[in-house]
Write a protein that binds this DNA or RNA. Sequence first.
DNA 1: GGCTAATCGAGACGGTACGTCTCGTCTTGTA
DNA 2: TACAAGACGAGACGTACCGTCTCGATTAGCC
Lengths: 198, 198, 198, 198
Amino acid sequence: MPNAPDPARRSERSRKAILDATLALLHESGYRDLTVEAIAARAGVGKQTIYRWWSGRGAVVLDALAEQVSSAGPPVLPDSGDLEADLRAVVRAIVAELADPRLSATTRALTIETLSSETLAEQVRDRLLRPQLDAIKTRLRSARQAGHLRKEADLDQAVELLIGPMYHRWMLRTGPLTDEYADGIVDLAMAALRPRAA
Amino acid sequence: MPNAPDPARRSERSRKAILDATLALLHESGYRDLTVEAIAARAGVGKQTIYRWWSGRGAVVLDALAEQVSSAGPPVLPDSGDLEADLRAVVRAIVAELADPRLSATTRALTIETLSSETLAEQVRDRLLRPQLDAIKTRLRSARQAGHLRKEADLDQAVELLIGPMYHRWMLRTGPLTDEYADGIVDLAMAALRPRAA
Amino acid sequence: MPNAPDPARRSERSRKAILDATLALLHESGYRDLTVEAIAARAGVGKQTIYRWWSGRGAVVLDALAEQVSSAGPPVLPDSGDLEADLRAVVRAIVAELADPRLSATTRALTIETLSSETLAEQVRDRLLRPQLDAIKTRLRSARQAGHLRKEADLDQAVELLIGPMYHRWMLRTGPLTDEYADGIVDLAMAALRPRAA
Amino acid sequence: MPNAPDPARRSERSRKAILDATLALLHESGYRDLTVEAIAARAGVGKQTIYRWWSGRGAVVLDALAEQVSSAGPPVLPDSGDLEADLRAVVRAIVAELADPRLSATTRALTIETLSSETLAEQVRDRLLRPQLDAIKTRLRSARQAGHLRKEADLDQAVELLIGPMYHRWMLRTGPLTDEYADGIVDLAMAALRPRAA
DNA sequence: GGCTAATCGAGACGGTACGTCTCGTCTTGTA
DNA sequence: TACAAGACGAGACGTACCGTCTCGATTAGCC
């Protein structure tokens, strides 16, 4: 019988050490060279302690990143009243992160996990991405109420309209990831979403 | 000296067997369980024969999929004169493919490769994706000339506007992939790209 | 400080359970599969309770067997006056035990311990084997006094002459372990030990 | 299918390295600390290469020792015509080896294997011990023909009479292992085996 | 049509990491 | 504080593949 371990007795110190080691190794050597063995060694932890609480490398990475994100508190977009300016800011920020090979390495890793495991995909979506998307969605909702967006606009689709093209270009390297590009996206999205009789 | 092998003496039978085995295994067990060893065994081929002609698993998969795609000939979009209808058709087709887990397994494999190796990413982009994107781009160019699109529209960005949101939703499973969704994308894109004083 | 545990507070119930479980597992699955973990589980005891009072598996097994043996009281050989007959009886009995795979499993276990740890070897020798050897020695001493053995015979060596060949054959399976074999040993030993001018 | 490996393609260099490493580690750290992992590392060999050709640690050790023994050629006892002197020499030699903790470590390892696995026991007996025992047996046979032994003496039993007590004393450390002890054994054995009307 | 050199199938090799197992210690309530 | 329970650090286990390296046994293109 592989009896389930008792979470109440879990060592917080080990949990912390494992997630810290994971992030450290991720930054130092990238996802490709990240092994469970290396994490255990770096964390000063037995491998079994990792396998006891996680299903594998992917799950550990997810938790490590989720912890990192959630420690920053829920993301909120500024609401200056000027929707276009606010979106420009956030889209420029995301594009900048994707353009930085160092920062986007993590995103790359996560995306691979997302494509490889359905369960991890859910987790990534809900714990890492959703908060960011929701922040944008909230800003758009307020804009819609203020009449800066068509009343009938589907906010989820609107968010994807902003985010999707960016990720696509990033993944396939089909073009530069610059501020100009970011602004272009916002222009297009605004053109699509602005009330018709502007 | 590891003298380069002589392509003239390459066994076409082995090349075929390897690519076929790769596609078969990809469909049967997915990308995760696809190993060079398994390909060799399935193809009735020595491992060295694979490493002699390809740099590794990724390269083989790429070739296998490229062969599959190119055998269908270059994709062309219909040009009925009605841009919106034509786009609806193609976007619906792509959405349908992504919604089918069997068909999208291939895309999944490719996307992983794209994320894993810069050199493979280039190949994937140029040999597999570009033709599809170019087909759409060509249709959009003809529409722009016909005055159905803003004169100043950036066609690359326009293509990404159509494609990006779809892939994003597919990867993250953030929503349903239906005809209605496809139509919604086209609506938004048209709203963004249509000449202002329509 | 790893303060020594207080034997006064030791749980007799646990001690008993551990030794019983050890014997039970030894009979059921053999020495190879006998782990401290299994003993603890079977005895309904924490592993620490074992390690608190014993140095490891070997020590527990030793204690378990010693308890088993000592509960039977000190062994005594019959003294019928006919030395050869008495020896035949005891040697046949030992040979029979060694021939039975079930019974000799325990001896096997002990012998391994003996070979693995000097301290355990001492214990095994003194607590388990010595009583048996001494019983034979006592019988031989009485025979020597009765003039049935050479006066100058070294009794320890005499005991080994009886016991050693048997164990050797048992360990190496170099021949059958039968009553005839037992009798042959006694014949040889008697030939060696009988007063010359018989 | 775990197809059997092809012995014809076996690397003699690896085989040698593995057996050498095994002997070296055995002498340095003893059987207890001997792991397959350590052997592989020391031999500069992949673990799989060990598992490909041997069933586990025991089998490797056996082969290593067998190689060591067989490289010395088949053992032959001198036949000076004086049986007692010849036996004294060989028994003293064996006792000396058992008395040396360094040399007897090997014997200890083998004996443990013998006790742990029936299949290994057979191998140990036939490949390592039998040659030694047979050498003694041969000497005894020639002595019997020369009339120095009882005609009806069972040679196997005679060999065990010489060897058994020694091993017993060695295993259980029930007494000193000295030349005097060796001579005592020979005396006893001769007394048992000499023709009656000597 | 025979020669010869490279490719082929096969698979053994030195490695790395896997995920599991067991060890002996440490930790956490309970009595 | 001894106990039952079991998580922990450690590290060996035996397996799966990696990419490289021999092996004969086909091939192919040049004589």
